[in-house]
Amino acid sequence: MLPTIFYIGLSALLFVIGVCGVLLRRSTLMVFMSIELMLNSANLALVTFANQRQSLDAQIMVFFVITIAAAEVAVGLALLVMIFMRKQTTNIDTMTTLKG
């Protein structure tokens, strides 16, 4: 059994890569993908802790996270398609209607 820190470190690294994706990429699709990556890294951490603690609760949590991620992607992509139909682009920098 490998030390837990290996997995957590990998999870953290993936998470930060996802964060960078959200912050740096300008296509909404890419932002979505990065968010999925972040969710996955969190899932990885949860599964690691489930294994470390020998408790299934964290795995159940992952199950729910995946469920919610699926719902989020479905709705998010639907919204994205609507936006694209209107603006002909998915560039997130063009969606600045809500500024002060």
Partner: peptide
């Protein structure tokens, strides 16, 4: 004054 920070760009908010 504060609204200047609010440039409407989601990426900035995320930052």
């Amino acid at each position: 004054a504060v609204a200047r920070i609010q440039n409407g760009n989601v990426r900035t908010y995320a930052l």
